[in-house]
Design a protein around this nucleic acid. Sequence first.
DNA 1: TTAAAAGTGTCAATAATTTGACAAAGTAAC
DNA 2: GTTACTTTGTCAAATTATTGACACTTTTAA
Lengths: 238, 238
Amino acid sequence: MGKEVKILVVDDEERIRRLLKMYLSREEYKIEEAEDGNEALAKALENEYDVILLDLMMPGKDGLEVCRELREKKATPVIMLTAKGEEVNRVQGFEAGTDDYIVKPFSPREVVLRVKAILRRASQTSYLQTEPTTKDVLVFPHLTIDHDAHKVTADGKEVNLTPKEYELLYYLAKAPDKVFEREQLLKEVWQYEFFGDLRTVDTHVKRLREKLNKASEFAARMIVTVWGVGYKFEVVNE
Amino acid sequence: MGKEVKILVVDDEERIRRLLKMYLSREEYKIEEAEDGNEALAKALENEYDVILLDLMMPGKDGLEVCRELREKKATPVIMLTAKGEEVNRVQGFEAGTDDYIVKPFSPREVVLRVKAILRRASQTSYLQTEPTTKDVLVFPHLTIDHDAHKVTADGKEVNLTPKEYELLYYLAKAPDKVFEREQLLKEVWQYEFFGDLRTVDTHVKRLREKLNKASEFAARMIVTVWGVGYKFEVVNE
DNA sequence: TTAAAAGTGTCAATAATTTGACAAAGTAAC
DNA sequence: GTTACTTTGTCAAATTATTGACACTTTTAA
């Protein structure tokens, strides 16, 4: 339902573009890319994007400049990507017409949250706001993940998860039945510059299962180990 | 119950319209927008609004002029938005038919309070005021927030809150269960040009909990920390 | 039975929150 | 106006919770 959401991702590093694309694709957004300021500006002016993710530091035209020039013609929401220490003056960014910031290295959750926040705001600006913005709640037998409230419930009982546990569960549950290798989970649930021990994933899975199990053994069993490959979320039929 | 309240928001800056809309939508008003004087006048004449929020400085026809022309046909209440330093002669404004002023940058509370004041005045002017204006009171177990009286009661005892504390509580309590990031709270509870320290939110939460706790430990526990994300208001089941 | 893979418990390192103290800004009372 | 009082925002400990690593145990599949 609702029309397709189009996002433009601008960064000179191919790796960053790929990561952003990966995170955002999971939310069913359509992603396009640009690798420098001029290309970004050209695309942004020609097309109608719902959000633009814009790197601050780029060879040639930098993010602020692109934003400023874009603003002369269009109001497309812009989220600026800044590296730590690159600390833009918020007021400066604000004057250029930036809507929000994300500091690198970012985590998937952060990116997705920000994009959603922007989209929500934008949709509220639309003339008639009759329909309530669709709630983001995953409901399975024995387990409910309410992403707005950031709350997990198993067999009626609330399960208190730490951020990483929550993210891990949410990530897996968003694609039931799909197996993820530990490497991939580390890349996508953790920040993108994290090169940690693969066993770390196991530890978190363990803690997650533990907590789920206290509330519902069925919920705990939904985190399934795929031997030799990784983990997946599978709905229990009971 | 009660008829819908329709408000027209007029400002050439999209951001300001969005902010006003955000604040006022939470009060269940229906908001329409106009981005310049002519559009405003056309809409104001065609429709029946309960209040018009009108920016003073706009390219083309300015706020005073719109107000003056509107007054030749209609008595719709007008609240003028003026930037600091832009200090209109109040007499001039009243001659044009302005009902009230708000100085930018404004805070949500200010906007909502003024609008409510105007609506109250308007409804009292009406001939027979039989229907009680719908009361704005949030009632939870152990906690009641009477927004009309601007009064908070926890387990029967009145809790004395400062404006910011009150606004923070009210904002959270208006959307139970929904998690808000500190950034968002700063953006929406504080004035819109405030770029303060995120920890400021924590301090206010602390003071709020402190005061609530003196009256009712259950009420205090309703302000819930969501680790790594932000805060939410959650009803305690006890 | 064995090698590889997964699960577990512990601990130190990190990270986020809470808190208290203080200064600045704003208000009210005189 | 000036003074006293309140509210507000910042900052930097102190506290608390999360996290990552690693060694060790258990399970699995061949």
